[in-house]
Design a protein around this nucleic acid. Sequence first.
DNA 1: CCATTTAGTCATGTATATTGACTATCAATC
DNA 2: GATTGATAGTCAATATACATGACTAAATGG
Lengths: 156, 156
Amino acid sequence: MTRETPWYEQVTTPALLRHARTTYGTAMRRALAAAGYDDIPKNGLYLIGGMAYQAQDMPLGNLVKDLRITKQAAGQLVDTLVTRGYLQRAVDEQDRRKLTVTLTARGRAAAVVQTEARKKIDAELLARARPNEVNITRRTLAALVEIGRQREADDA
Amino acid sequence: MTRETPWYEQVTTPALLRHARTTYGTAMRRALAAAGYDDIPKNGLYLIGGMAYQAQDMPLGNLVKDLRITKQAAGQLVDTLVTRGYLQRAVDEQDRRKLTVTLTARGRAAAVVQTEARKKIDAELLARARPNEVNITRRTLAALVEIGRQREADDA
DNA sequence: CCATTTAGTCATGTATATTGACTATCAATC
DNA sequence: GATTGATAGTCAATATACATGACTAAATGG
């Protein structure tokens, strides 16, 4: 009995990464839209989801690094999210040049929906992969991220 | 000695996926730009890299599904890549409505550069993770992709 | 054949991001 | 305590990528 080559061996790793992320992305977008949050711009998911998971407030400068966009684009992104009621801007009292960003009530509500959608995918994944395999995957992805950071630091 | 929580445990899986893909993306873009291929649009990498890896020619319709963009956007993407000398369009003789797309010489040359950049990252990854861990990662990513496909099929 | 479906185009609008030029705050020195 | 330089963000104009709506041409299926 000859073993069939699995489809994913015909696909590059970056392509796998792309499509894997799409699974999360569409699931989160669908859930958000169903709950009435259908006006979140592209990178808004990253911002809202990240803030709910990690930090209560985030300096705008972090966005620039994380999303690898210009500060103008970051400002514009925050602008629309403020306009649409998801975010609040505040001046950092320690350094009055800095702006920090916090979720509004609406923003937190959206974050909850988004987080649940994400966890749903995480749960579905555990039906197809062992917990240990998921851990290894996350560690390996982290290694890839570190390679990117390293390279960036090297040529700077 | 208390074990420190690794940074990546504070990050959602979709965020890890995003940043991991960025490592590949910037490496490939840099290599391409250094070799004179600095006019490739966003999704062009996916197209050129994918065609080099998988198929010699690709029906335009596949792009629509893979990239999850409208056929108009796909047509436009191919247009610019044809204009810039990376792709060639041809009518499918079996079905004269269909257009298939092939790499030109320039396109193949760019694909080589891109592929090498990708493999370089793959190699660097093997300095930080075992081959088996990389395999598990790719399989787990494939599972995520399948979850997305499944969900799409379900609500169709 | 005629109706329907499939594959792609043309024209137009919109959202997202970029480049370039500017203001405001802070930090360090003289 | 005034001057220089660096950092954080804004404003204005523009480019690019993608979407929507209306259309043409080729294939499929009674």
